[in-house]
Design a protein around this nucleic acid. Structure first.
Lengths: 105, 105
DNA sequence: CAAGTATATAACGATATACTCATATATGCA
DNA sequence: TGCATATATGAGTATATCGTTATATACTTG
């Protein structure tokens, strides 16, 4: 694997990316988008978050390039920015899964 | 891949794990441990963090199972809890790397 | 243009988190 | 035992971030 030099600002970037995932509300949003594009209203229903709160998190993730935004009439449709976005979450889920199973036996 | 049901508390767990990585100071510590076991004092030098601050972050990551602790006389030697700990960071680094390269051309 | 709906944003309070300074605890040694 | 060193922790401050309420903006339709 190519070893990347980790400058201080690289640490900042990486941390910022992790921080985006380090919030249950945002994870819920991302997983609600797993099945495909959703309007803000639909995401309200799917996640149980308030509209204002949702909008703020979406803006946040849009700025980080985690989600994509498409305006269509009155509606705004959000989607995952790429197939890799949830891969990271799945890795962590898998790790926790394994740890949980290991600690049981 | 086994599809795991994502309960609310699963979201919390995953978010907590991500949050641990979402802090530049902790990333610096983890990467300083990449080369192997280090005492707190050595980590002070390697990261530039204050002793008190460092001690807190180490405690935090110890509780999450990201680092291991071994007491040896007056010294306490910390190390990465497992080989998978930094794999996640490398994934993110790689993604950012690719994105940076893609946005250049 | 007026009214209704979808989304975004401003302002605010509450809470959490990072950091520092000072001090406590633990260990080794004279 | 007394001192020096390594690490941990308590207390306090500053800042960031989440969530809410109220309001603004943008678009559609009558």
């Amino acid at each position: 694997m190519a070893r990347t030099r980790l400058t201080p600002e690289r640490f900042e970037q990486v941390a910022a990316r992790f921080k985006a995932f380090g919030e249950p509300a945002r994870l819920r949003i991302l997983y609600a988008l797993r099945a495909g594009e959703r309007t803000v209203g639909e995401l309200c229903d799917a996640t149980g978050l308030s509209q204002a709160n949702l909008s703020r998190h979406l803006h946040y993730m849009l700025a980080l390039g985690l989600v994509a935004r498409r305006k269509q009439g009155v509606f705004v449709r959000y989607s995952l920015a790429g197939p890799g976005v949830l891969r990271l979450c799945d890795v962590v889920c898998g790790q926790l899964e394994r740890e949980a199973r290991a600690s049981l036996r």
